[in-house]
């Protein structure tokens, strides 16, 4: 049996809102360690990998592995019914047909209970090996979101060039070109404003902005985004949770 209680419903709300436009049907695999999701978008360009570690929950128990096949569009509708500050408890039996969501308002005795029917979802599980990346950058997630949104007005592609002392984002389009250059900086008073670059090899990689537009929906999950890039392989975009992460692996575009 699964019983996982979030101190605030807002965390699961944000997670679901962050991935529901990338993938619709996915298995939430619940184990004693927490809840994991892995899913690939329909165009097979973007892979979503989520871990909500058991430490995120104020109470968590899951004696046996339980798979919840969820339609995220329906899940999102139910989650929106709860208040952000409500306790949210997920409950499921060992071989469940449905998952129950219980919202408890902290300021009153109101308890709202919803159940979502589950689906049999047959998706392949991809093996992702730990890689050494050419470069790892960390920067404020909101800055990354703004840069990507701004440059997407010009082009369908975002080129990322990383050297040891700069990160350059570039977009070239029919109506014009744009670029944003960032330099590493350490902000002692506000560490979340810091920008760091670790470089093994200089990077020059290009990605589809329509996928990055979906990735940056995770911005509210973390002050910082970690981007790990190697030339000619998928980049990893990571929002860290208090325990766990939301990761997006995005396949690059290649010159014709």
């Amino acid at each position: 049996m699964l019983e996982g209680k979030f101190e605030e419903a807002s965390l699961l709300k944000k997670v679901v809102e962050s991935i529901k436009d990338s993938v619709q049907l996915c298995n939430f695999v619940c184990s004693e360690h927490g809840i994991t999701v892995q899913a690939v978008d329909d165009s097979r360009v973007l892979l979503v990998s989520l871990l909500i570690g058991n430490e995120v929950f104020s109470d968590y128990r899951c004696d046996r592995n339980i798979t919840l096949g969820v339609d995220l569009k329906s899940f999102a509708k139910i989650i929106r019914c709860g208040g952000n500050d409500d306790y949210l408890t997920l409950i499921a039996e060992d071989s469940p047909d449905s998952v129950t969501l219980v919202f408890e308002d902290k300021n009153s005795d109101r308890i709202s209970e919803y159940s979502l029917k589950l689906m049999e979802i047959d998706n392949e599980f991809l093996k992702i090996d730990d890689m050494d990346y050419d470069s790892v950058i960390k920067m404020p997630s909101i800055d990354f979101q703004k840069i990507c949104r701004d440059l997407s007005t010009l082009s369908e592609s975002l080129q990322i060039l990383i050297t040891k002392d700069s990160i350059k984002f570039m977009a070239e389009g029919e109506t014009g070109n744009g670029s944003v250059i960032l330099k590493p900086r350490t902000d002692i008073d506000k560490p979340e404003q810091s920008i760091t670059v670790k470089l093994n090899n200089a990077v020059n990689s290009t990605f589809g902005l329509k996928y990055i537009a979906d990735i940056v929906k995770g911005t509210s999950l973390s002050n910082q985004i970690v981007i790990k890039i190697s030339n000619r392989t998928p980049a990893l975009f990571e929002y860290k949770l208090q325990s766990g992460y939301l990761r997006f692996y995005l396949a690059p575009k290649f010159e014709d």
């Binding site: 360009v45 093996k127 082009s155 592609s157 589809g208 396949a251």
Partner: peptide, 14 residues
């Protein structure tokens, strides 16, 4: 501009 690659070219099924 550029050809979009697939994530499946990089990560194998388990």
């Amino acid at each position: 501009k550029g050809k979009q690659s697939s994530i499946m070219n990089f990560f194998g099924t388990r």
